[in-house]
Design a protein around this nucleic acid. Structure first.
Lengths: 360, 360
DNA sequence: GTGTCAACCGAAAACGCTTTCGGTAAGTGT
DNA sequence: ACACTTACCGAAAGCGTTTTCGGTTGACAC
């Protein structure tokens, strides 16, 4: 099933067959049809390695998968990768996965790619506030797009959600409901989305004339446990919050658990809003309010961007896209309950008295 | 940075350099050291395409990712893929993802692989009870391992969990707690794990001398919504179950929601046990009991198996491994509450009377 | 000395495709 | 009739490795 075979069979030269298959315009329509039919009849597939070696093109995209955070929004990740694979498949390109253990290893991989060019384009994610990868990839001249911005991404291609606006929207919503003491459970601020979300929260408070109490800003691991721990700390405060903006749904779910453990009902004594729009939130008791990203097909978009850069040499700057998250009210965002603040200090409440909030 | 350059630089032939790098034994230790040093100094990486073309080896593994079931245990999937990527990376092999839209497309991909051999080995999953892929891959002589068995997998390599035993263990446990009316919310039985799990449930009942009531066997979509729907059907029964064995944690979570919506408390009037050992189960109210698979590094294992088959020509049959799932008691498996069965028929209960079960 | 055997290395032929360059034949205008 | 395109195709040179097949040494025994 080599090009050779098919050429002899048709009494054409290899080069003609090759060009016919690749739709060169100096091949007559007749021969093209002829060759195509012969190819599909014999079930011919060009050898990718030979093709790539000869053409110098790799025709594949690699996604740098964030390592070892089992707690991160994994359903989203799967969705994302499926989207990428689908879009690439439509183009006939390959999709590989890179899972570096450390940032050093990641950079090493980049260098290898830049030398051998065995990967035509890259998609990175989980961007840091300051992220060397942008500079490195730029220097190595590897076409790439990032899922998430960074302070170093001005000249790069990216798609992202407006984290700051999302969290100021969220916070403003709670303020409008009547809350004044609104906490934020955030994450490690070296991650760009972390610091942006914290900023959004802070901005909304300031804008409403509420002074920001540093005690109300907790930093947590982005996991169930992290959220639970942070929530417990908040409840220990002399003047606990009546609402909490959580950096992720996972964290919010942990926080809900902590509330329950103290005999409180999420959305009653303490409102909770998460972020991610996870399906699971709908199935909790009570259902978790959250911010949802509109990226139904982020994977596909990312792929299309990087393909454009590889094939047409598009400028990265022409591919920057910001989306806005939308509030999804479910059951855990409600007006503060007057007099409830007393209940909030350390003492475990009797379940029967605190149970049965007004719901949504 | 070609082999050429480095050869001239050292005044050696290309072939010598190549063999030195690949550790052939007819190259002296001295020259090997020399070449190696030169290579690492210049930062040389062999061109993968050229290498693969010349050697005929692809040195990569592809994973056929199950498409479009957002509801499936995605954290596990991510974990799995990370494990695969890690193991492959250690070997210097590439990892690609295949995401076919249909079974036809999947088979087409297999044929392409068998022709061009651009993928050395395959990992498949989400096996069907009758799964043509086993026969096809065997005929095409593509080395592969499956994550999950099938009726057609006798001669193939696989790792799997003993689904039947897991569900008979689960059911037996509920029987021991005193339950007699034990339902099963299962899935589409064309999936192998689905039918196995249903079988385990049925076997345990029979073994305990309990006649199997077909009404108690619900088939649901493997999602939150599917679980909720099935649970509602069960509650509508004239004689509803006091315990439910759910095919997955997702389904169980949906079932819990349905219970709550009827004013019931999961683990009180109706015990619920899930399957998968999802982290999220720990954070529900009450925490969900479940069966946990011991596959901490299934990805790595799968990769090692297929590599062995590719490199050493190992027989598939020597790589079949069955694991046993373990019960994780959390909050939703308890003895039946006497007199509760009355509450179970359709009527919405007042929350205050039903709330506050004995917990775990 | 001659023969033998390792140990080492080089020349050159693959591997299966792409792409440049040039050549022929037919069409176009004058 | 001539030059000049245009349309189409073939020859051949890569692409950067691996691998087969010999060939040249030097050591060692006789």
């Amino acid at each position: 099933m080599k090009l050779n075979t098919i050429a002899q069979q048709l009494k054409l030269s290899e080069s003609t067959v090759s060009r016919a298959l690749n739709d060169y315009r100096d091949i007559s329509a007749d021969t093209k049809a002829l060759v195509r039919r012969a190819a599909s009849e014999t079930g011919y597939f060009p050898n990718p390695h030979a093709r790539r070696l000869a053409s110098g093109k790799a025709d594949n995209i690699a996604y740098v998968m964030p390592r070892s955070d089992g707690q991160f929004n994994s359903s989203f990740l799967v969705e994302l990768m499926a989207g990428m694979a689908g879009a690439l498949n439509a183009k006939g390109w390959d999709f590989s996965l890179l899972v570096p253990d450390s940032i050093e290893e990641e950079i090493e991989i980049f260098q290898k790619i830049s030398r051998t060019r065995h990967v035509s384009g890259l998609i990175i994610s989980r961007t840091l506030t300051r992220d060397v990868r942008f500079k490195i990839l730029h220097e190595l001249k590897i076409p790439f797009v990032s899922h998430g911005r960074s302070m170093d991404s001005a000249a790069a291609a990216w798609i992202d959600v407006d984290n700051a606006t999302a969290f100021s929207d969220m916070t403003a919503h709670l303020i409008e409901l009547g809350h004044r003491r609104i906490a934020h459970i955030g994450g490690e601020e070296s991650y760009n989305f972390s610091s942006q979300r914290a900023r959004g929260w802070r901005d909304a408070l300031v804008k409403a004339g509420i002074t920001v109490d540093p005690d109300l800003h907790q930093k947590a691991e982005l996991s169930f446990a992290g959220g639970a721990f942070a929530m417990r700390s908040l409840l220990m405060l002399a003047d606990p919050p009546t609402a909490v903006c959580c950096i992720s749904d996972h964290v919010a779910i942990g926080a809900m658990r902590a509330l329950r453990d103290c005999g409180l009902v999420p959305g009653h004594e303490v409102s909770v809003i998460g972020y991610d729009g996870l399906e699971i939130g709908n199935w909790l008791e009570p259902p978790l309010s959250t911010m949802k990203q509109p990226l139904q097909s982020a994977g596909q978009q990312l792929v299309e961007i990087v393909i454009n850069m590889v094939e047409n040499g598009d400028s990265p700057k022409d591919h920057q896209k910001l989306y806005r998250a939308k509030l999804v009210r479910r059951g855990t965002d409600n007006p503060p309950v007057p007099g409830c603040s007393k209940h909030l200090s350390r003492s475990r409440q009797d379940k029967n008295t605190t149970f049965g909030g007004e719901g949504k």
